[in-house]
């Protein structure tokens, strides 16, 4: 880095960069603050609209409303569990397979790569996929969150192309020392993969945490393994239907209620917060400038 001498051009570049970044910063921060503000604002006041980045009438009522749903806490635990188990399983599988596919001499390299690559694009349809899941007894089981989506071809290929960029000489010397492929993978490749592993791990983890559709399809009524996101979807749906186009009979329940808008925002906050808390810890792996050069020496 040329931190010693800065030219005029450098200052111009800096100015442009900071200006653009600032615009991005504001335009991405505003909606989030808006969500926070509405989530912490009085529900009937929010209906009037126009809440900016600060609540007009601060309250915790919207969140208290959420505590009425006993499955939320359990759902949170299941979500946490699936995020941890799912990320670990997927990450190990992806890296191991990626290493095998990165080996130019591997006999099935092309065949396997194509096979996995196409999984991203082929769509077998709802019913056939379900029948396979059912045949393996995965529906209504926790493992439906882990196994069918074990390897994402996208992540697999990212990791593979990262490994391919590593100098082959690193492996070669290990082979000369008599190491086998598995040892090379665990002892040499894995440590070098840290930046891409962190990234792909983040992708897997966020995917696991945010996912609700698999619960909806494969385990909608098994409360033992319901996830946080699915329960939040249920709450949202219920609050909406209070204003839905239903028959006369629906109107008989007697109560004041929190508006769907406020529920939606409170739900968004509950869903995002855990990721926000974890992110800084992951971030350091790919922002702090961990470099190949450093590892090599």
């Amino acid at each position: 880095m040329n931190r010693f001498r800065r030219t005029k051009g450098d200052y111009i570049i800096d100015f442009v960069i900071y200006a653009v970044t600032l615009v991005i910063l504001v335009s991405t921060l505003f909606p989030f603050l808006n969500v926070l503000a509405i989530a912490f604002n009085d529900s009937s006041d929010s209906v009037k609209g126009g809440v900016g980045i600060l609540p007009r009438i601060p309250t915790l009522d919207n969140f208290k409303e959420l505590t009425r749903f006993p499955l939320l806490l359990q759902g949170g635990l299941i979500s946490l569990l699936r995020t941890i188990v799912g990320t670990v399983c997927s990450l190990l599988s992806t890296c191991m397979l990626a290493y095998v596919l990165s080996r130019k001499d591997f006999i099935f390299k092309k065949f396997f790569t194509a096979l996995f690559l196409f999984t991203m694009y082929v769509d077998s349809g709802l019913i056939p996929h379900f029948m396979v899941i059912r045949t393996f007894g995965l529906n209504n089981s926790f493992w439906v969150y882990i196994i069918p989506g074990l390897i994402s071809a996208y992540n697999l290929i990212l990791v593979r192309s990262f490994i391919e960029q590593l100098p082959y000489s690193l492996q070669e010397s290990a082979f000369l020392d008599g190491a086998n492929d598995f040892t090379v993978f665990t002892k040499i490749i894995m440590p070098l993969c840290l930046p891409v592993t962190a990234t792909v791990g983040l992708f897997y983890a966020v995917g696991q945490w945010n996912s609700w559709f698999d619960t909806y399809l494969y385990a909608p009524f098994n409360e033992k393994i319901t996830t946080l996101q699915y329960e939040l979807m249920k709450i949202l749906q219920q609050s909406m239907s209070q204003q839905g186009n239903l028959s006369q009979a629906g109107k008989l329940a007697q109560s004041q209620s929190i508006s769907p808008l406020s529920i939606r925002m409170a739900v968004t906050v509950v869903a995002i917060l855990p990721i926000l808390l974890v992110y800084p810890f992951v971030q350091k792996y790919f922002v702090s400038g961990l470099t190949l050069g450093a590892v090599k020496s």
Partner: peptide, 28 residues
Amino acid sequence: QRFLLAMSLPFFLWVLLFCYLPLAGWGM
């Protein structure tokens, strides 16, 4: 390449079962 095969065959099975077996449904 037995190590490489051992490291990849389980996933080969997985991809056949979960991604390509359902394609039989294309018959629909």
